[in-house]
Amino acid sequence: MSALVWLHGGSLSCTDPAMEANPDAPAIFVFDRPFLQENRIAFARLQFMYEGAISALRGRAQTRACVGVQVEEILKFAKNCGCTAVHATQVYSPELERTFDALEEAGLEVVVYAADRLTSYSGSVKRFSAFWRKVEREVLG
């Protein structure tokens, strides 16, 4: 089963877990037109992200960067590359979850990699001071 890597706004590096796990896979970055039409975002932010994206894509044989409807563009790229799975790294955002769901509904297997973590803490969180007491030794060690 061949995979492609989706680089989203929280994973703009060749060292992203999904990228490192698939060093020879095609990779895509999409500026989501509907999101940018609905939300005010400064140009400087978009260039900063794009510089991260092209730096991450550099050196890969098959890449694509585009502006469009995110899900549609990923599906189109998957079809062109003959890929049946999309690999991406988890960051928590409503848009990302919606994209994962839509890709799955469209028939792609979605493989999600855990984001890099500073601690192994997995309990509930409410106030930083309580969290810090639990992780201080691990973080400073």
Partner: peptide, 22 residues
């Protein structure tokens, strides 16, 4: 990007001093 993303950003097409590459 100024050309390709026209209408999709809220400011003038000016880059930040900070380079976004790895």
């Amino acid at each position: 990007l100024a050309q390709m993303l026209e209408g999709l950003y809220s400011t003038d097409a000016m880059a930040s001093e900070t380079d976004g590459s790895r």
